[in-house]
Amino acid sequence: MNRWCAVLWTCLALALCPTAARADELRPAYIEMTEQAPGQWSLLWKASANSRLGHSGEVMIPKNCKIDGESQREFAASNILTRLSLLCDGSVQGQTIGLKGLELSTTDALVRIAPIDAAMQTVRLTPDQPIATLAKPSIISNVAATYTIIGIEHILLGFDHLFFVLALVLLLKGGWLVAKTVTAFTIAHSLTLVGTTLGLLSLPSQPVEAVIALSIVFLAVEVVKSRPGDFRLSERFPWIVAFLFGLLHGFGFAGALAEIGLPEGDVPLALLTFNLGVELGQLAIVAVALAALYGIRQVRIQWLQPTKTALAYGIGSISTYWLIERMVS
C-alpha cells in the first residue's frame, strides 16, 4: 500500500506543479491617494506586470475628482506603476473608489486614502466588491483588520510556507511538540520579516526562494525516512531546524509584503498585525492537520504511516519542482 500511495501522490503532485509553482505570489494591486494640499491629490497605483490588471486595469476615482495633467507610467521590478495628479472638489469621504477590471481577476486590491485633515483609512477591494465607499473609520482598526486578513491569506495561499508547516506536523509526534516547534518557526520568520522591511537585512530573492523550497524537500525526506526509535535530525532538534529555516522563510514573507505595500506612518501596526495573521493561519493549519491525523488513527491506525508517507511524497515532489524552477529561472 505504501508504494501505491506514494506513486499516486507523486503523480498528483506533478500534475499540479504548473499551478502550484506560483506558491508565494500574493500580489494584490495597491492604490494610494495622498492629499498634498487642500483639494490637490496624488494617486499611485501598482499592479504586477504579469497580471491582467497591470496592463488593462483602471482606477475609478471619486466622482468629485478629476485628473490633472498626463498620467506617468513606469516599470519597477516586476510591477507597473501609474501616477496621477487629481483635483478634488471637497472631501472624498462618502465618495466611492474602485478598480475597473478587478472583477475579472483572481486577486484583491488595497486602497490607502490619506487626507490632510482627517484620519487615514485603508480599504480592501475584491473581485466580488471592486468598488468601496470611503468613510471615516478608525485608523487603528482599519489597518489592523486589513493586514491581519492579509497575513492569514498569505500563509494559507502561500503553499510553500503551508507545506513547511504541514511537513512539521507529519514529522513530529504530539500536539505540544508541534506547537512549540511552529512557535520557533514564527519567531524566526518574524525577526527576518521585520529586519528586511525596516531595511536592516537584505538577501537576493531568487536564492532565498530556492532554499525555501529546499527546506521543504528536506523535511519531506525526513518524514519518509522516519522510523520508530531511530530519530532523524529534525526529530532530535525540531526547534533549531524550524528556527533556522524560519529565518529564510521570513525573507519570503518580506518579499510578498513588499509587493503588497505598507501604509506610511503605520508600518509597525501593519507588521504586527500581518505577523498575527500569519500565526493565526499557522495555528489553523496545525489544528486541522492534527485533527485529520487523529481521525485516521481512530478509524484504522494501520493507515496512519502510509498516509504520512504519501503526503510527504506529494509535498516533496512539488517542492522539488519549485527548487529546480527557482534555480534555473
Rank of each mutant, 00 (worst) to 15 (best):
V7Q: 03
T10I: 10
C11L: 14
A13E: 02
L16P: 03
C17E: 09
T19A: 12
A20W: 03
A21S: 08
E32N: 14
E32G: 10
E32M: 15
Q40A: 12
A47W: 05
S48Q: 06
S48I: 12
L53D: 12
S56C: 02
M60I: 12
G69I: 07
E74T: 09
E74H: 04
A76H: 12
R83Q: 02
G90W: 13
Q93R: 13
Q93N: 09
Q93Y: 11
L99N: 06
K100A: 11
I113N: 03
P115V: 07
A119E: 04
T126H: 10
P130M: 13
K136I: 14
N142P: 06
A144S: 13
A144N: 11
Y147T: 03
T148P: 09
I149H: 11
I150E: 11
I152A: 06
F159R: 01
F164N: 06
F164V: 15
A167Y: 11
K173L: 07
V178Q: 12
K180N: 15
K180D: 15
T183S: 15
L193D: 08
L200D: 10
S202F: 14
S205H: 00
S205Q: 04
S205K: 03
V217F: 02
L219F: 09
E222V: 07
R232V: 00
E235L: 02
L244V: 02
F245G: 01
F245S: 01
L247G: 04
G250Q: 07
A258H: 09
D266Y: 12
V267L: 03
L280C: 00
G281C: 08
A284H: 03
A289N: 04
L290K: 02
Q305A: 09
T307Y: 11
L311E: 06
G314S: 05
I318L: 13
Y321C: 09
E325W: 00
R326K: 09
